[in-house]
Computed example of a mutant assay.
Amino acid sequence: MSDKNKYREGPIICVVGARPNFMKMAPILRALAQQTPPLSVLLVHTGQHYDRDMSDKLFDDLRLPRPDINLEVGSASHAVQTAEVMRRFEPIIDTHQPSCIVVVGDVNSTLACTLVAVKKGILVAHVEAGLRSNDRAMPEEINRILTDQIADRLYTTERSAEGNLKREGIEADRLCFVGNVMIDSLVHSRANALNFLETLRLSGVDHSQFGVGKAYGVVTMHRPSNVDQPDILRGLLETLAEVSQKLPLIFALHPRTRANIEKFKLSFLIDSVRMVLLPPQGYLEMLGLMVDASVVLTDSGGLQEETTALGVPCLTLRENTERPITIEQGTNTLVGTDRQAIISGVDLILSGKGKHGKIPELWDGNAAERIANDLAQWIQK
């Protein structure tokens, strides 16, 4: 038995820290429970992002069990938050002596818990490994690179990730191509997605301009590069206001975005009957909004994947993406923050000439099952 597998009989600790992690972890937990015998699992929520009402609803939407442990770290600077997760996670390792930990995605909690586990001699499996934007100004890119370097088992969502990891000197026998667990949640939940009209009604919005089947677009923005600088945020809002004259927009406002719109006194740019403003939405509501949308305009990595799986055109308001397969095979187009590129992209989609794309390899709703099968064998080696 290797030093890194000294707690062979211990539970698997699954770590979540922020909203996108929940969508990735929910199908993994179901798949681990279906192993014969079921694998012992402890779900740890670091509390990196936590809104009690929204988190409770998200757990319900995804049929995700409540966390066994919540570290309640809360928001802070990247350095403070990472350090605090590490400080609070170490006693969990000492107490429960896990056989391994499973981390997903690229948030601060992913890197922090990986660092603690590796230094304690605990095996680490990273789900969604190898994705790269090649933009080291993104904190998530640093988290991805470092986590992949020190994790023991790397589960990839697309073939290009393997090339990224091999270029970084990671051995092939640490890699396992399994597909995309985010799509597992989408496949599992699509039948329960709320119709967009119902979502508007529940939000108390006058939706009279949205006739059944009428075209509309969905907007989300939250990345600091888009919403923290007044000139960039103003330019994007002016462009969205112009787009809204072509088709109504449903804008699910992230708290950071709303706060900066108010801080920079830009509210007048989104005060339009053609732009419906909603608070952050639950998973089933957001899924329903996307299913029926003519186009999604976003800077979210997860929405790039979900729109590709749904066959809905997506315009990504970024200069790069760590999910190139959504461009090469899917429905995604990078438009950055350039007004003309965004307008032209919308016009192309509304003309019926936008990308139709295809479903990427192994984005079939069974990625979590492949992970659980491999994990069960791997931790016993």
Rank of each mutant, 00 (worst) to 15 (best):
I145Y: 04
N164K: 04
R167G: 09
V181Q: 09
G179N: 03
Y155V: 10
A191T: 08
G163S: 09
R174I: 02
N180F: 00
G169Y: 13
F196W: 15
E171M: 11
E158C: 06
L202Y: 06
L197G: 08
T199F: 07
G204K: 02
Y155W: 14
I142K: 04
N164G: 06
A151H: 12
E158H: 06
I170Q: 11
R159K: 11
N180K: 00
L194T: 09
Y155M: 12
G179E: 03
A193I: 05
G163W: 04
I183M: 02
Q149N: 08
V178C: 13
H188R: 13
Y155P: 12
S203I: 00
A191N: 10
L194P: 01
G169I: 12
R153N: 03
R159Y: 07
R201M: 01
Y155D: 07
D173A: 10
L200W: 09
F177M: 04
A161V: 04
I142W: 01
I142H: 07
D152G: 15
I170W: 09
E141F: 02
Q149F: 04
A191M: 05
M182Y: 03
L154G: 11
A191D: 06
S203F: 00
V178P: 07
A161N: 13
G204C: 03
Y155F: 15
I150E: 00
F177R: 06
E198D: 15
S160C: 10
D173H: 14
L197C: 02
E198G: 07
R153G: 06
L186T: 05
E140C: 04
